[in-house]
Nucleic acid binder design. Sequence first.
DNA 1: ATAATTGCAAACACTTTGCACCTGT
DNA 2: ACAGGTGCAAAGTGTTTGCAATTAT
Lengths: 133, 133
Amino acid sequence: MAGKYKTRQNEVIKKCLEENKDGYVTVQQVMDYLKSQEISVGLTTIYRQLDRLVEEGIVTKVNVEGKAGACYQWMPEQDEQDLIYIQCEKCGEVSTMECHHLAELYHHVESDHHFKVNTKKTVLYGRCDKCNK
Amino acid sequence: MAGKYKTRQNEVIKKCLEENKDGYVTVQQVMDYLKSQEISVGLTTIYRQLDRLVEEGIVTKVNVEGKAGACYQWMPEQDEQDLIYIQCEKCGEVSTMECHHLAELYHHVESDHHFKVNTKKTVLYGRCDKCNK
DNA sequence: ATAATTGCAAACACTTTGCACCTGT
DNA sequence: ACAGGTGCAAAGTGTTTGCAATTAT
């Protein structure tokens, strides 16, 4: 059975996710984090521990568009409801913007459609100022 | 430049997705469909055509939890500015909803950030009612 | 004519598995 | 002691790329 013994690797991988709870973390980022902590952990173990954390419901596995490989996110998501990404379809540049209309939008979607929005993933596509000329 | 010539492959792959618009389709299913139509198409071409359809906003790429490999789904038709897609991150289902907050949002983004939004590509991700238990 | 598309094989990238060794209880 | 955890190397899987032949305009 899994998840019985508490190990150093388990602990640090979990800490990595928790410290990045405001966003997604790739497997490679976990690897780098561990390296920065001067802890040597094999890739296999990272995968296994992440699966275990997902199993335990502490973390979610997400497939982020445009990103190769799975991403993992600490579960208790606090919503940054008024930030949105905009990405230019031509040059690919991504920027963040603040918008107070978002909260209303999300609220509407959630109350009228019973759809719980993952507010971190909202992206608007289009043309940025530079590329629009 | 992509998407310039109309080919038989392109046409039939698109048709496959459209005929299955009530759900998502795996790459393998597309392969099988083509075989059933007695049309020989290489895997490479399928991937490339699917990317193209995603690029054009006709189709969406879905990562269905627990399923290996990407799935693709025909997008519901959307012509008006106050329609938005919502896609469940768990089951992959896409639906359309109407929202009058969108016009304000787009207007804000365009006037304050000089970013011309492609209103046909806006998708909110999250959990649908069913998957939220 | 010429530029895009095709499809095979090979390369890639991410993930999983087999197995001998190590570690927590 | 021993079940569980680790990590290397190797295998597996889905996807992308190089490139010569083919096809649409």
